[in-house]
Write a protein that binds this DNA or RNA. Structure first.
Lengths: 206, 206
DNA sequence: GTCTATATGGGGATAGAC
DNA sequence: GTCTATCCCCATATAGAC
């Protein structure tokens, strides 16, 4: 007999994967129980209902997201600002490449959120953090005099956030696009280009 | 007795709405039949199975999208290029505001597409058209000498496309953001700013 | 905490009359 | 084309033993 915690963790992990593979609505207790390796009714020991399970998986997802300050404002200084910002984006793109489940499951919950106040509120809160992160970043860049233009910082920050976010969505089902280059263009479009070698600005390298 | 065409149209229309309201997987023949005002088995006269219905709705959706040249390249000339491009985006934003169902249903199918080759192919084709539209546009802008920088036109075009697309997604569940301003910033970030009155560039008006 | 057995409801789908 | 009646299956969920 395994410890309850293990089963619970496995239950959530397995559900998460199945949600990505089949969608939340089409994932059944039968599938979950089978893959976890327990009997179907055992799930009810941990979750009173399927809705509870769906919420439970969402809770874990939120914890995992909560950009644990996915970028540190302090480490952005005048010298490395643009490179750093590009690196952050490239890193996020690479991570999404590794975990294609994440965006899918998140999209599932986004759709649920359009019909459920609770999910909606919590996703909005996450989104707000995400957006403010970029706002703070651009504010700092502005104060350092790194931006081409100081107007409408908020809109510019949101622009960057929207791009990075949607790169993840597009990656879900289109492999052909040069996402890193898009991100680089987006960043360069806002920042004063420090004069470097032509080749370096046109072709990125990691 | 109504004509078959009417019933079919109603069937698709109602399904489309229910798909948006409840999600595809949770929309049942019972719901559809009730709202259309026919008996449940009557649906089978038009669609052999629920999968067939789902595909049928998708067919209609695709027809509706196929950006019937959602912007005309010819009408973009040197004098009005930026304004026109902004207007196109603002128009799309306004339209999404009017039909909040559209993006939701599309997202539903996007998720289906991650698990179904057929949907995937067809959505990719649509996406490609959408992206090439922006590519052609920026190419023209570049030849007219309207861009700040002629490098990586494709990436820049994709950047614009990603932004406009994700504005639609965000609008699904966040009303608070100034989407039009984001779009304006995105466009301005690529184009050489013609010198106009300060106020006009910082605050848009329709 | 996990099991077997079982209840219940509603989903997609068919048969066949009109 | 649309209906009524009906079938089957499987999903969520419960009861109660171990």
């Amino acid at each position: 007999m395994r410890k309850s915690n293990e089963t619970l963790a496995s239950l959530i992990q397995v559900s998460y994967c199945l949600f990505a593979e089949h969608g939340i609505a089409k994932t059944t207790y039968t599938m979950i129980a089978k893959r976890v390796g327990i009997a179907k009714p055992s799930i009810y020991y941990y979750f009173d209902s399927k809705d509870a399970l769906i919420t439970g998986v969402f809770d874990e997802l939120c914890k995992a997201i909560e950009f644990p300050a996915f970028f540190e404002l302090e480490q952005f200084i005048e010298d490395n600002f643009v490179e750093n910002l590009i690196a952050v984006g490239v890193k996020m793109i690479d991570e999404q490449d590794k975990d294609p489940y994440f965006k899918r499951v998140l999209q599932e919950y986004m759709l649920l959120a359009t019909r459920d106040q609770d999910f909606s509120k919590r996703l909005l809160a996450l989104q707000k953090d995400y957006l403010s992160g970029f706002e703070a970043l651009l504010e700092k860049a502005s104060m350092l005099g790194l931006l081409k233009n100081k107007d409408n910082l908020v809109a510019k920050a949101h622009m960057l956030a929207l791009i990075l976010d949607n790169i993840g969505n597009f990656m879900m089902f289109d492999e052909q696009i040069d996402y890193k280059q898009i991100w680089i263009e987006a960043v360069h479009s806002l920042f004063t280009k420090e004069e470097t070698d032509e080749n370096e600005t046109t072709n990125y390298r990691i």
